[in-house]
Computed example of a mutant assay.
Amino acid sequence: MPSLAQMNGSLHIHNFYIGKLKAKQEQLFESGPELAMLLDNVAANAEVLTHDIADMECDD
């Protein structure tokens, strides 16, 4: 299992790219639904990481 620091780093990277993609969301929906689905998948993964990090912090 990854460490808390690794998970926080991964979450930071996810959030960085989510922010960039959300800024271009209008273009994503126009250019193809598969890109919009990719954004949804990345955002969902970041949400799971957020919950996992919170659980790990509570355990410590």
Rank of each mutant, 00 (worst) to 15 (best):
N45I: 06
E34Q: 15
H12M: 12
E26C: 07
S3N: 04
D52G: 06
Y17K: 02
E26T: 13
Q27G: 09
L21P: 02
F16A: 08
A5F: 12
N41G: 03
K24E: 13
H14V: 01
L21A: 04
G32R: 13
D60H: 14
L35C: 11
T50G: 08
D52W: 06
Q6A: 10
E47F: 02
E30K: 15
A43R: 03
G9H: 03
P2A: 15
I18T: 02
V48R: 14
I18D: 01
A43P: 00
E30C: 12
H12P: 02
A44P: 00
L11D: 00
K22C: 03
M56A: 09
A46N: 00
A54H: 14
F29M: 11
L11C: 00
M7Q: 00
L11E: 00
A43H: 05
K20Q: 06
A5Q: 15
I53S: 00
E34I: 11
Q27R: 14
S3P: 07
L35E: 10
D59E: 12
A44V: 09
A36M: 07
E26M: 02
Q25I: 08
D55V: 03
E34T: 10
M37F: 11
V42I: 13
A43V: 08
V42W: 04
A44H: 01
A36R: 02
M7Y: 01
K24P: 03
Q6P: 05
N41I: 03
A36H: 07
A54T: 06
P33A: 10
V42A: 09
H51M: 08
D60N: 09
E57V: 02
